[in-house]
Every structure is written in C-alpha cells, then in structure tokens.
Design a protein around this nucleic acid. Structure first.
Length: 400
RNA sequence: GGGCGUGUUCCCGAGUGGCCAAAGGGGGCAGACUGUAAAUCUGUUGCGUUUCGCUUCGGUGGUCCGAAUCCACCCGCGCCCA
C-alpha cells in the first residue's frame, strides 16, 4: 500500500488542500514539510506524539521533515479552539521547554545527515520590525475574514486579545519563511491548525505566486468526543519523569472498548493486515487488543525494555501473581517502625489530604498487602516493603 | 473615558443578613457488578487532633452581636457608546 492510502486507511488525514497533488508528492518522497511545536510545557504529550509519528512515516517514504520549534510563536499563544487565553509564558520558560522538546524529539526522528532539520522560529520572529511586518504581511490579511473563522468562535464570545489575534499571522509567516529558506512546500498539523495553515498557503500565493500545501491530522478523540491523552490530573506526558512508563501503559490499557481499534490504527506502526484481523475482535477479546495497544505505544515512547517491564508489572498485579519488581515505588520515613494509615496515604500522595485519606479508608478503598484497612487509626508496620493499594488499579510499593 | 452588567468551592450554577462549608447538575474518587471496558446502582467530594474546631464565596477596608449576602474603594471580565 502506498503511503498516502495507508494514511487514509489509518484515519490519520483530516483535511487537505489538494489531494491529488499531495498524494503524488508524498508517495514520491518529494515533499519538504514542516510541523510546528509550540513549547507550552516541559514535555511533549500524546498529540505531539501523533505528529511525530506522522513525521516518521513520511520520512521513511523519503520526504524531508522540518521540526519547527515555536520559540517565537510561543511568546504569543495560539487561541485556536480555546475558550480562554493561556497564561503567558516567560522567555525563560520557553527556552527551557524548547530544550526539553529537543531531547525528546530526537528519540523519534532521525536528524542526522540532513535527513530532517530542526529550526526555531524565534530566529526570525523575534527581530521583526512592527511597521515593516504590518506593511509586508499585515496587508495580506483581511480582518473581516479572520473574524469569521471557526477557530475563533469561542473567543468571539468570551474575548480575544490583539496579541493572540496575531498568532495566525505569525504562523503564516513561518510557512512563508520556510518556503523561501528550505523549499518547504507542505505543512502538517493538528486539525485545529487548519485555518492557521491555510493562512500560510495564501500568504505564499500572494507574496510569491507559488503553491504550497497543507494537510491536517485527525484529532484523536475518544468515543465521547473528548481529546484523548488527557486524564483528570492533566496530560499523559512522554517524559518518564512526568508520566512513568507504567502509568503510560495503564492509560492505554484502560481505554474504552469503543476506542481501542481507532488508537491502534492511528498510533501504532503495526502493519495494516494485522490490524484488519484484529478489527474483527469483539467483547472481552478486545481486552487483548488493549494490551497490544498499551505495549506497542509504551515500546515506541519508552523503549522495549520499559514496555516489557510495564507489561510484566501489570500482568502480575491483575493476574494475581505477586511479582512486584516493576511497580512504582515510594520510600517513606518511619518513626519507631510504623506509621498511621492516613499519614502513609498522604505521604505517598495517594491522597491529597488526611481528610480524603479518611474517606478512602471508610469507603473500603485502601488495602495493605491485599488486606482492606477499615480503621482510620490503624498503624501500619513496615519491615522491608509493603504493597499499598488504592481502589483496584492504583498500586504502590512502599519501602522504608 | 461613559453606560449597563458580572465575579461563589475542580467546572456550570443556586444562594441577597443568622438554619451556609454553602442547593442542584457535571466531573473526580471509592464501593457493588464486570473483562484493568461501557452502562447501572451506592457512598463521597474545603482542612483538621471529627458528636467539635478552623479557613473559604475577586481584593481591601467598613457597618453589624453576626456578612457569600449590606456600604465604600479597588481589580478582572462581558456587552453597548467613544
């Protein structure tokens, strides 16, 4: 199967500017394309991961990727599809985040020998002259038109600042610069970026009279229409220090039935034939698919060794065996060999406060070495290690 | 700059002087049932040394025995006018 058809079959493509042209170009490995990453946090997340995978797929077919770090656009903040303005990042935050991004990216994409390049739009955006930009670029944008864009809809109701309104212009300018500097003829991005990306193709047409293309990646939504890769506590990060490989594994292992196959198709590199076979699975059989999904993704993000560990750890916990080697571990300080259960829960961050710890205990949600603790005043003795469990899925090995 | 609104706990949203740690819903967490799924039902959801105490309703300062609720000033946000 050719690349473009595979991307379609995997459900990765949301919108394209010129399907025939793009298909021809990427199948032939003729595209030089870019994807922008704004340094909004100190780690990449699942959405970035999808973009990087797409980058990899295209790179494997001979196309040349440009990873654009948003050192300049990060100073503004993209309002697309957001209901509120984000907190403004400081220059220091942005620089730090960029360093974190760089490290993580080179794990996925081969930047050696010019196979891919990494650039930072701070290099050209930060020194722009206001009046010059207004005359040169601002004149190409219609405010009337911009105000009608769907991506600003929520902000038209709740307020959009001039700062953010300019984001689109800066992103368009990026594409225009990359076209001239590197012959970049295509841009990829999340589907929420569509308007921003078209801004770039139009700017290139107006200023240079040339055609450039844009293609968006389907946003990964769950069956309830919410963005995937988010938990109550925040994003699922690729940085093992922010989301441990075990937690990462568990996130995908616990995915809803309705979403498994979609995720396997969109996120893994398993061959399409194998995926076709799996798509016939139903009911509890799907449970196996979840394990495959979790393993494959953990392997891609954290490497085979970590994936094996996570799989082992999960199996032993849920399969009833007692292998605790790979369980997340926390060390606690004891006074005279024991600790109150409430303090233990708070110290291990299983409960945010003693109040909640108490509620968990009285709701029979806490077990030590598989024995449910019912007394909130219980003193737990720890010699060596114990297994602390909250609910059914949260396990912690506690050592002294 | 002027006018009119508005700001409540994770979110939406009730509350306009004591019965308010604050209705209801959503979300979260836990229990039952299950396949580490979904749906459903139950409990819980500010903090603590828990029949009680403490801190909270944009901020500060007042009035009052008593303030989320009244007053003054300030700040944020929205709409209209400029």
């Amino acid at each position: 199967m050719e690349l473009y058809d595979e991307l379609v079959a995997r459900g990765l493509i949301a919108q394209v500017t010129d399907e025939q042209e793009i298909k021809k170009m990427i199948n032939a490995g003729k595209a030089t394309f870019y994807i922008g990453f704004d340094p909004t946090a100190d780690s990449l997340h699942v959405g970035h991961f999808m973009a990087l995978c797409l980058m990899k797929r295209l790179q494997m077919a001979g196309n040349k990727p440009i990873a654009l770090l948003g050192g300049g656009t990060g100073m503004i903040g993209d309002p697309s599809g957001k209901s509120d303005m984000r907190k403004m990042l400081t220059k220091e935050d942005i620089d730090h985040n960029i360093e974190c991004f760089k490290k993580q990216m080179s794990r996925f994409i081969d930047f050696s020998e010019g196979k891919a390049i990494m650039v930072n739009n701070a290099d050209w955006l930060l020194d722009l002259n206001y009046i010059e930009v207004l005359r040169e670029v601002g004149a190409c944008f219609s405010v009337n038109k911009m105000l009608t864009f769907e991506c600003y809809k929520q902000r038209m109701e709740r307020g959009l600042t001039f700062l953010e309104f300019n984001y689109m212009i800066m992103q368009s300018y990026d594409f225009y610069m990359l076209y001239q500097k590197y012959g970049c003829n295509m841009q990829f991005g999340g589907d929420d970026q569509w308007a921003n990306m078209l801004g770039g193709t139009e700017l290139i047409r107006k200023k240079l009279g040339k055609d450039a293309h844009a293609m968006t990646i389907t946003l990964l939504l769950n069956s309830e229409g919410k963005k995937m890769g988010k938990t109550e506590k925040g994003a699922v990060w690729l940085d093992p220090n922010k989301t441990s490989p075990f937690e990462f594994f568990q996130y995908w292992r616990n995915i809803a039935d309705a979403d498994v196959m979609k995720c396997i198709r969109m996120l893994t590199f398993l061959p399409m034939e194998q995926i076709e076979e799996m798509s016939a699975w139903e009911g509890s059989e799907l449970n196996k698919a979840k394990e495959i999904l979790a393993y494959e993704l953990t392997k891609l993000v954290h490497g085979e060794e970590e994936a094996d560990k996570a799989l082992e750890g999960a199996k032993s916990l849920f399969g009833g065996r007692g292998n605790t080697d790979n369980m997340p571990t926390v060390k606690v300080e004891l006074t005279d060999g024991k600790i109150g259960i409430l303090d233990l829960l708070v110290n291990t961050k299983l409960a945010p406060s003693k109040r909640e710890a108490r509620n968990l205990v009285s709701g029979k949600g806490i077990a030590v070495d598989d024995v449910i603790i019912e007394d909130a005043n219980a003193q737990i003795e720890i010699n060596g290690e114990i297994i602390l469990r909250k609910g059914k899925k949260v396990f912690l090995k506690v050592v002294v």
